[in-house]
């Protein structure tokens, strides 16, 4: 078996997304963020960890474009670097969530019957616990390192992927080509992988892109609460938590990470919406049903 069926028609997708105005704006924002994140270690003007006691809470100037925070660190440098760790965690966690979520969802749709009912009841019950408490439950036991966040978020966000993959696969399980494969005596794994997966791949890819932005928000929220990216690694959520106490004296320390995070998520949403429109997929929201 080759792996051609995994590959998405990327040039075609790019053309479709860029054909729409909102898609162009979204892609531009996302690409800018990616470029900054990749180049940040080279282009940051100052050491993000360097604490200058003589330059605390300075307003924006030529030497500190976005001012300094309460420890005299350069806010511009920290903002440039602040998305890297969260993006890395989100990317790894998205792969885990999509992998186990779609595998289980497609298999369960194919098997059906009692197995399907029992598995979905468990997924349902786990989704009844708000994601943040489910994640906190694991973090309390495992500690909050980036290495622990990846599997924990990958598991938690995979739950909704099971739903989506199952719903997408259910449209195909009764089709002739699946029945034919069953009649040929193919195993369930091979039917799921070669008959069902290629048909649900595009819609799952859109969901994956969306999940990425929700997981990114989750990482930032956890960092804000002090359970995500740990200092000294700069992170937007952590910077916002840090600058809250000084928002009257140094609003710049608060506003730059807020703008950075919000613009990335909004850009991602615009791009994915444009992509979802051309593929005819209904994208998921952060809140089920909404």
């Amino acid at each position: 078996m080759n792996t051609v069926w995994l590959a998405l028609p990327l040039p075609q997708i790019l053309r479709d997304v860029l054909a729409q105005r909102s898609g162009r704006i979204g892609m531009a924002i996302v690409c800018l963020h990616l470029a900054v994140a990749l180049a940040a270690p080279v282009i940051t003007p100052q050491d993000s960890a360097y604490q200058d006691a003589s330059a605390m809470l300075q307003s924006p100037s030529f030497s500190h474009w976005f001012g300094t925070d309460r420890l005299g660190r350069d806010v511009f440098s920290r903002t440039l670097l602040g998305g890297r760790e969260a993006m890395l965690i989100a990317t790894a966690a998205t792969f885990i969530a999509m992998a186990w979520g779609s595998a289980l969802g497609i298999l369960v749709a194919l098997i059906g019957g009692r197995t399907d009912a029992i598995v979905m009841r468990f997924i349902d019950a786990m989704m009844s616990i708000p994601w943040i408490l489910l994640v906190m439950l694991f973090i309390a036991a495992l500690g909050s390192s980036s290495a622990a966040l990846v599997p924990v978020l990958g598991f938690s966000y995979g739950l909704s992927v099971v739903y989506l993959a199952r719903a997408a696969a259910l449209d195909f399980v009764a089709r002739d080509f699946v029945l034919a494969a069953q009649a040929r005596g193919h195993s369930r794994w091979s039917i799921a992988a070669t008959e069902l997966f290629p048909n649900v791949r595009d819609s799952l890819a859109v969901q994956g892109a969306m999940q990425w932005s929700w997981i990114l928000l989750a990482v930032s929220s956890l960092s804000f609460l002090g359970m995500g990216v740990a200092p000294p690694t700069p992170d937007w959520g952590q910077m916002i938590a840090d600058a809250r106490g000084i928002m009257q004296r140094a609003p710049w320390a608060l506003i730059s990470p807020m703008l950075a995070l919000s613009s990335l998520v909004i850009g991602m949403n615009l791009a994915v919406d444009a992509w979802a429109r051309v593929t005819g997929v209904e994208r998921t929201r952060r809140v089920p049903g909404a």
């Binding site: 928000l217 930032s220 929220s221 804000f224 959520g237 916002i240 938590a241 809250r244 928002m247 608060l254 807020m258 995070l261 919000s262 998520v265 909004i266 949403n269 929201r285 952060r286 809140v287 909404a290």
Partner: peptide
């Protein structure tokens, strides 16, 4: 709907 809760709250 897009901006995270901790940013809305801080705003």
């Amino acid at each position: 709907m897009t901006v995270p809760e901790f940013i809305s709250g801080t705003l």
